[in-house]
Nucleic acid binder design. Structure first.
Lengths: 241, 241
DNA sequence: CGCTGTCTTGAAAGGACTCAACGCCGGTGG
DNA sequence: CCACCGGCGTTGAGTCCTTTCAAGACAGCG
């Protein structure tokens, strides 16, 4: 099977054989997690980062009073906690939603890359910057949009992200998230997620049966969520020299 | 005067003379901006990043319907758009709130650093990761907390950030933001910001006259905002070798 | 002194939440 | 093979936080 990280980084520019070899090497230690299993508990200090090869996962934050904010949904190819390479202390946690296979990448290996592979370093840095760009977009979504728009935006975002890794079929894809998880990500109660989803269905924007989501009217959904994919920087080119 | 960036990076570990010299060099091109002036308009493609030496500024995002989300408040020492080094396209904009002096750092210089100064590279990367950690915290604030708590959290955060650069006097500091700006950052209307501030004052948590903010009851404010400063990673140590 | 941006206040409307109960479905175990 | 169970989705009603609209007060500045 193709390597999730290599193909992702190559969207930003070609890698040398040597660089690919290194990436293969440092991602060789793989592991498997079952649904709902914690991969990295919040508040821990880690010595490796988690690259997702398969499955869906979340990054989350529990506030002291027990409420949970989901700060990211992760899919194949995502380097979920690359930031722990330098931050060490994880203020957020990572948990599998569906069965997940991951590669554990040692921080020491990453450090070696920063010493010997400048281009690769920038490429990895870039992925964390894109992560930040998504966070900022979510801030705008949470701060300025109302419930219908938030979900509309998210469904558009997930379509484009899943498409990159080949997990869409036209405008439909698997979205194995519960309404509670959607609520925890977008600051809405489960009840309200449910009602908004019904509205979106009634208005003919989406169809969702079980875990499958179909976008029936991409253009309307896009407008409702004021979605523009530029913040994903999917094909952002990196200069080599 | 001491160098804002050097002293900030040295909190994560000592720099060599050589590294300091390089930092001095690449930050030598300074500029000045007046209040409300745009420093980097949103949607532009840039060839340099902005390091703040003095003054207050915001990072913001306009949605299509004209609403504005403020995604960050920037103070002295902040490398506001270091992410544009690799992302190039700025989905957000930067504007001065008060008179600001900044250093413009050429992306080409940053690239050279990634080639020759691995430790410095990691240090700079770290600052962008902290940026991301703050974004995630704000996501939690916006997604899970109500208005009183949001502002309480923010006042705590700003105290700690300003203290690092010596801009506090005990628990009081200058906070030259309008209520509209606070509202645009935390997803609340100006009117509601006003009312919540009055509550916080009435409850004896803060005093604010004009631009000056005094935290009267740090512990209560901290609890109200569920504030824990670990996400700022102020003294996060970086390994050199 | 008048202007303009900011802060303040009041009243009414609305979006979202909580509480609570019920239906559905797949999985488990007898 | 069927009954029970638990997680998830759905629905209704009442409440609350926050918004919008509108107008007035205040303060700094030219």
């Amino acid at each position: 099977m193709s390597h999730a990280l290599i193909s992702k980084l190559e969207r930003h520019g070609p890698l040398t054989e040597d660089e690919k070899r290194v990436l293969q090497q440092i991602t060789s230690r793989t592991a498997f997690y079952g649904p709902r299993e914690a991969i990295v508990p919040e508040g821990t200090t880690t010595s490796h980062s988690t690259l997702f090869l398969e499955g869906f996962a979340i990054r989350y934050n529990h506030s002291l009073d027990g409420r949970r904010q989901i700060t990211a949904f992760h899919i194949a190819g995502d380097f979920a906690d690359l930031h722990s390479f330098l931050l060490k202390h994880m203020d957020d946690g990572i948990a599998a939603l569906t069965p997940c296979s991951v590669a554990h990448v040692a921080h020491s290996d990453l450090k070696e890359i920063t010493k010997a592979y400048p281009y690769l370093t920038r490429a990895l840095w870039l992925t964390t910057l894109i992560d930040g760009a998504v966070h900022r977009t979510w801030l705008t979504v949470l701060g300025q949009m109302e419930a219908r728009e938030r979900l509309a935006h998210f469904f558009c975002e997930m379509r484009d992200r899943l498409e990159v890794v080949g997990l869409t079929e036209g405008n439909s894809y698997e979205l194995p998230f519960t309404q509670e998880e959607l609520g925890d990500a977008f600051g809405m109660s489960t009840v309200h997620v449910n009602r908004v989803l019904q509205e979106l269905r009634t208005d003919g924007l989406i169809t969702s049966r079980g875990r499958a989501l179909i976008i029936n009217d991409w253009e309307k959904l896009r407008q409702l969520g004021q979605y523009t994919p530029s913040y994903l920087h999917t094909d952002q080119k990196l200069e080599r020299d």
